[in-house]
Nucleic acid binder design. Structure first.
Lengths: 127, 127
DNA sequence: CGGTATCCCCGAAGATACTG
DNA sequence: CAGTATCTTCGGGGATACCG
C-alpha cells in the first residue's frame, strides 16, 4: 500500500481517467441521475462510470441515493465532506490554467494546435 | 489532447507512478545527482527515473545541470517556477492526511493493517 | 434504468543488457 | 556515472452482452 506519502492519497481520488470530469459535472449540476451523468460525458461507458462513482462513494466524496422503484432511479451528488475539496480543486485548476500559459510562453502557442475542438459547452467551473 | 479541463493539466504533472516521490526528494534535499535520487528511491529503475525527470524538466519544474566531465555528473533541482507549486503540494498533502483520518473514522483503523512497513526514514516534508 | 459479467487490447512500467 | 535500447509483462480501461 506504499504509504510513505500522504499526498498521494489526495492524488488517488483525482486519478482514474474519469474522476475529474465526474466531479466537475456533479459540482456544477448539484444532483444528477446515472443516465444524466452518462449523457453529459459522451465517451464514458457504464462500466467506467459505475466504477469511478463507487470509488468516489467509498471515499465519502460522492453520495449515492437509490430510489427503490421500477424502473430504477439513482441519483448522485457531492457530499458535504466532499465539498471540502473545492478549495484544493479550485487551486489546482487555477494553477493548471496558469501553467498552460507558462508553457505557451516557453514553447509558443503553436503547441496547442488543434485543441479546443470541444466547444466548452456547459462547464460551470474549473475550466 | 482533451483540453476541456485545465485542472487535469495540474494532475498530469503529479501523475506517473514516481513524480510525487521525486518531487518530494528534490524539495527536501535541494540539489541531487542522478545516482543520489536513484539510491533514495530504492525501487525505481534508471529508465523510469530518467523519463519522469525529463517530463518534469519539460514542464519547467525541474532543472537539469550537466557537468561535462568523465565520468559524467548531472544534478537535478527544483526550478524557481517549480517552487511555486509548493503551496498546492502542501495543501494536497494536508488534505490527504486529513482524509486518511476521515477514512479511519468511517471504516476503522483496521483498514491500514500492515501499512507503515516503510520506516518513514527521511521525509523532510509533505508526509 | 442502472447496473454486472466477460473478453480483449494496448500502453505504461519492469527487467535486462549495452554505451559514451 | 548517467543514461539508451530492447523485450516482456501486467492491468486499466474499452467493447459487448446480459440482467433485476
Amino acid at each position: 500500500m506504499s504509504t510513505y506519502c500522504k499526498f498521494e492519497t489526495a492524488l488517488d481520488i483525482l486519478v482514474g481517467k474519469w474522476k475529474p470530469v465526474i466531479l466537475l459535472r456533479l459540482l456544477a449540476n448539484g444532483t444528477m441521475r446515472f443516465s444524466e451523468l452518462q449523457k453529459s460525458i459522451p465517451d464514458i461507458t457504464k462500466k467506467m462510470l459505475t466504477q469511478q462513482l463507487r470509488e468516489l462513494e467509498y471515499h465519502d466524496i460522492v453520495h449515492r441515493e437509490v430510489y427503490p422503484q421500477v424502473p430504477p432511479k439513482v441519483e448522485y451528488s457531492i457530499t458535504e465532506y466532499g465539498k471540502g475539496m473545492t478549495p484544493i480543486l479550485q487551486a489546482m485548476s487555477d494553477w493548471g490554467a496558469a501553467h498552460v500559459a507558462h508553457l505557451d510562453e516557453l514553447y509558443g502557442k503553436n503547441s496547442s494546435e488543434g485543441a479546443f475542438l470541444v466547444p466548452v459547452d456547459e462547464q460551470a467551473e474549473f475550466d
